[in-house]
């Protein structure tokens, strides 16, 4: 028996919004530790890694490890039927071929349930080693989303250049070129507004705008985003989900021939 309850459906809606542009379907691996998902997009350029810890749920029970392959378009249709404030409960029997989403209104007067067929998906897990990155930048998630959106008007690629002075995002194309520099903040009233840079060595890497923009769909989950970079290895874009877990995106860099 698997049962996981969140007091506000809005959290699950935001999690789904953060992954459904990159993935058509994905396997949710459930254990007593929580829910894990790891999947590459179709073109194998990016990877989504989601962790929702069991202690972050309002109720969590998982008697046996369970892998639930879900069509994210179908899941999205179902979650649209929930109000943001509804309690959401996911339930499945052991070895089941369906999962049930139950929504309950705050006043308990409306209860709906939606059963969704599960899919058997090929599991392709990548082993990602623990890495010490040359540069780790933390910045407001809204600012990162704004930068990705603005620069994608100028080119297909963004160059991220990080030194101890700051981080520079650049793009160029037919229109011309654009550069956005962010300095490390000296003092801020609110921690979520800070830009911080931990640098061992400066790095300059090139990434496809399209994927960075897709990652920023996770912005509603977190005030801050963390970018981890080293020369010639994938970028890690991490959003922490308060009291519940995190979503990490890995993006292969573009490299000169």
């Amino acid at each position: 028996m698997f049962e996981a309850r969140l007091n506000a459906a809005t959290t699950l809606k935001k999690v789904l919004d953060a992954i459904k542009d990159l993935l058509n379907e994905a396997t949710f691996d459930c254990s007593d530790a929580g829910i894990q998902l790891q999947a590459m997009d179709n073109s194998h350029v990016s990877l989504v890694s989601l962790t929702l810890r069991s202690d972050g749920f309002d109720k969590f029970r998982c008697d046996r490890n369970l892998s639930m392959g879900m069509n994210l378009g179908s899941m999205s249709k179902i979650l649209k039927c929930a109000n943001n404030e509804d309690t959401v409960t996911m339930k499945a029997q052991d070895n089941a071929d369906t999962v049930t989403f139950m929504f309950e209104s705050q006043n308990h007067e409306k209860v709906s349930d939606y059963e969704m067929k599960l899919m058997n998906l090929d599991q392709e897990h990548l082993g990602i080693p623990e890495t010490d990155y040359s540069c780790v930048v933390r910045m407001p998630a809204m600012e990162f989303a704004r930068i990705c959106r603005d620069l994608s008007q100028f080119g297909e690629s963004v160059i991220i250049c990080c030194t101890k002075e700051g981080v520079k995002f650049s793009a160029s194309g037919d229109v011309g070129s654009a550069n956005i520099k962010l300095a490390q903040t000296s003092s801020v009233d609110k921690e979520e507004e800070a830009v911080t840079i931990e640098m061992q060595e400066p790095v300059s890497l090139t990434f496809a705008c399209r994927y960075l923009n897709a990652f920023t769909k996770a912005t509603p989950l977190s005030n801050q985003v963390q970018l981890s970079m080293s020369a010639d290895v994938p970028l890690v874009v991490e959003y922490r989900i308060p009291d519940l877990g995190h979503i990490r995106y890995y993006l292969a860099p573009k490299i000169e021939e």
């Binding site: 350029v45 690629s157 994938p234 573009k254 490299i255």
Partner: peptide, 14 residues
């Protein structure tokens, strides 16, 4: 122009 790499150039399947 730089070419887009595949993630599997960096990480292997487990």
């Amino acid at each position: 122009t730089p070419i887009q790499n595949d993630l599997q150039e960096f990480y292997s399947l487990v």
